[in-house]
Design a protein around this nucleic acid. Structure first.
Lengths: 229, 229
DNA sequence: ATAAACCCTCAAGTCGAGGTTGAAGGATGG
DNA sequence: CCATCCTTCAACCTCGACTTGAGGGTTTAT
């Protein structure tokens, strides 16, 4: 009873604990009981050993990853995830609405330029004034996905005569505001208690939205005040 | 006191019950208490009458419809909806609430307090830090209508421990950004040629929206960067 | 001026989703 | 044979999203 457990694809099935350890990196809040719960809700149906142990084939693990991603990034309830999975998963191209918890994807310089419709020189200028930021990974400059939008916005402003160097204050303003929030939630976010960290994250999201609303209001008031009566 | 409640767009504001009846067809599970709950959660901020009754302008009703649709069709939790709304997602008309050209209405201290749900001491504090501004007209302090929303937003933040004095930097940031735009459009705005003034105003609106989008992006990037990886 | 209809706040309660915990015990591997 | 992992099942818990109720004020029509 040894090689008999090998799979068609060569990888051998994992026990529930092994699955958990493997996914822990991408999904820190996974747990054995959660996986069992998902099975209970009909989202997973792993094989079993004679003795009743769950055995997760590679495809089961992938399915589980999909489920966790849909939960984390799309905020879908399990009932809907079940539906989507059983109906073949077509038709799902929503705007990525990644919240604070989804990992950020990255793009290289070429992609950034293409998607934002700008050239390399412009990006260099943006970088100089801290509007976008890259970090090098084996020789290639990588940018956060969201910098594509930043670059595009800057470019449109540039066409109105607002050069990147004028925009530095936007960056410092944003940093200062975020720094303020940091002071408030930092204790929670750095807590050893995962529950506390989680609620800190939620508080941060709420706080950030409210702050955003406030700056929006203040900004428009300021803009309004510059038009002569 | 009858036609006086008419809005700039011709439709008059609805009371909460009227809103409910109007939306009941598309959203059968709407209720008065639910609408109040949404306001409590910072998703809506309708104006108020002197007596404290909520008054929903057309744009408030639209915002509410958006919220309900995001809940029903996209299954988004309120926390996420709040974020989406405070971002530019709601692209159209998230700009100047009444356009840069509409005259601003004014309210007195009592009205401000009532409508924002704050007390006089709080308003004084806000004023001290430049978050709201009053000008005296024959003995009464008058505030711009939009300061009601500012005060309400500040109050919500205050409940999270963010005192008005922390918020001063929001004000200065907004001013600095607006000042930048001013330098660009000032010549047009002060031109003797009315046509030129008009196009300057339009340019200002465009520029302001773009700037707003940029600061929004930069702010969220900054916020994201404060959560430990 | 009064009544009916409508609205307010605030605290407490409800309800379902999405899990966690613990007890009692069987399975697996060195 | 023993440590470690796994099993089920029922009870429990937390949180988001409201609902309810008490006590009281506002609006409007007559």
């Amino acid at each position: 009873m040894e090689a008999a457990t090998a799979q068609t694809d060569g990888t051998r099935p994992l026990t529930i604990g092994a699955v958990c350890r493997r996914l822990r990196e991408e999904f820190p809040d996974i747990s054995i009981s959660k996986i069992r719960y998902l099975e209970d809700q009909g989202l997973l149906m792993p094989r079993r050993t004679q003795g009743g142990y769950r055995l997760f084939a590679e495809e089961d693990v992938e399915r589980l990853e999909t489920i966790l991603r849909l939960q984390r990034d799309e905020f879908l309830p399990l009932r809907v995830i079940r539906q989507e999975l059983s109906s073949g998963m077509h038709r799902r191209e929503r705007a990525p609405r990644a919240g604070l918890r989804a990992p950020e994807t990255e793009v290289d310089l070429g992609t950034l330029c293409e998607r934002a419709g700008v050239d390399g020189a412009f990006v260099r200028e943006l970088e100089e004034f801290g509007l976008v930021e890259s970090h090098a990974v084996d020789g290639r400059k990588l940018f956060a996905d969201r910098d594509v939008d930043v670059a595009a916005a800057c470019f449109r402003l540039a066409r109105f005569g607002v050069a990147p160097r004028h925009l530095r204050s936007f960056r410092t303003g944003a940093d200062r505001e975020a720094g303020l929030l940091e002071q408030i939630v930092a204790p929670s976010l750095r807590s050893p208690n995962p529950e506390r960290r989680h609620s800190g994250l939620e508080e941060l999201e709420t706080l950030a939205s409210l702050s955003q609303e406030l700056s929006h209001l203040l900004f428009w008031r300021a803009v309004r005040s510059i038009v002569p009566r």
